[in-house]
Design a protein around this nucleic acid. Sequence first.
RNA 1: UCCAGCGUGGCUCAAUGGUAGAGCGGGUGACUGUUAAUCACUAGGUUGUAGGUUCGAGUCCUACCGCUGGAGCCA
Length: 499
Amino acid sequence: MPDFIAISDLPRFLDQPVKLRGWIRAIRSSGKIRFVELRDGTGDCQCTVEAAYAEAFAALEGCGQESSVEICGVSRAEPRGPGGVEVSAREVRVLHQAEAYPIARKEHGVDFLMQHRHLWLRSPRQAAILRVRHRIIQAARQFFDDNGFTLIDTPIFQPGAAEGAGTLFEVDYFGDPAFLAQTGQLYLETAAMALGKVYCFGPTFRAEKSKTRRHLTEFWMIEPEIAFYELEDLEALSEEFLSQIVQAVLTHNRADLELLERNVAALENIRAPFPRMTYSEAVDFLHDPGLHEKLEAELEAERGRLGEIRKAISETETQLGQVTKAWKVEKLGNDLKALKEQAGELERWLANRPAHIEDAKNFQWGKDFGGDEETILSNQFERPLIVTEYPREVKAFYMKQNPADPRTVRNLDVLAPEGYGEIIGGSQREDDLQTLLDRMAEEGMDPEPYQWYLDLRRYGSVPHGGFGLGIERTVSWICGLKHIRETIPFPRLMGKMMP
RNA sequence: UCCAGCGUGGCUCAAUGGUAGAGCGGGUGACUGUUAAUCACUAGGUUGUAGGUUCGAGUCCUACCGCUGGAGCCA
């Protein structure tokens, strides 16, 4: 008898004795035969246990969902089993008989699932997201490692704000105030002056009171910082970086994307070059009558989609009249509710859209883009959109003033397609000491605690820059999720920390 | 913080102001090919909390608590 094998390896062990171990995802009985859907983290496999194997059959008595078991049996090709391979069990050893498992194989409310996040992770969909998350992180690090970057760990306890204060978590540090890092950037700049190309990867914290599908209070960010890099270099880097991440997911996690019902074709499009525009060009674009026509056409198309949803609603209602089984009635009822929600959401969108178009027409140079403008801009492209050179006033003090136009800075934002918003933000950094001091004064900042940072501009200052990629927003986009809470094992949301 | 919506068995939901129910899950039994199996039986409730209106409140009113969605801010 061989050692335990992973379910994912099962096709290599056809018609052989095998030993599996894992958890029961579902169990059904039909008198003298039991069907066990076993999962082990690598895949799912149906095992049949016949009453002829009396001990094995009896062992499963009272075993419900998520009981842990070891199963020895013989594998065989079986089209009736999910995955095409089935194991006929000869021996079953129950490791632990689970109590009644709270998460049933049916729809649940978000609140309930969030309270059971520790168990929810066992669901196929959540596991698929976590695998894609892992791939994204792995590919991101691989990209930097392959391109001569050195990983630098920046501190999580930090003395002050890199960007606007008031959005930081304050902690007591032996009687003095300290703050949880919202970026490793300032420290990373020092390391870039030592090692040239560096990156950091770690958790960051924002105390913003944002309750939206795009916000977490604790999230992970990967940030490269490179000496002698200017804005154009950063644009090229971000483009190559994102392309490779997406391609890695497509190569290794296709099954996960399919399970998530992600539109894979949209991801296959994500290759350099990405469209680029400056902030000023973006503002002109928002004012362009051609865009308004396109948006009106889009509005028409969405009205058509609303019609389709309404058709689906009436079809579901018809089906509902034909079904008698109570749980099927319930399921169709849930489908109907979801469709109605979708229709409602679309109706609201359609109602607000003319105002958004109006806002776009009237957008004034100098304001920061809101979510609506970002969405309008990025929706015009099938690839991520790189927007550069924003007005100085809306951006952080350390960003390099644009020599060609001092009203703007040499920064970049990368907006994901399909309305997923900003996934990368970065800039070339101000390398001139006096300009930086002036800028800090403009912001009312005390330069004293930043002397170490200013030293970089005193001892061999060079052009340099970097950016940060938000892992969770990237996961959300690549997986096509509706809410960022599913992108991280234990999301920290405003006012929510359990489990 | 502001606006909107929702709180009924473990879960998902029903119930004109008039005796609180169903399905799933749990338990018991039947069934050798199930895919959320099917069939029968069974246990399980102070309807978020506190007041109020009423002969009578799950249902109406007020406050609070919790959750969800959206806005601002951001990755």
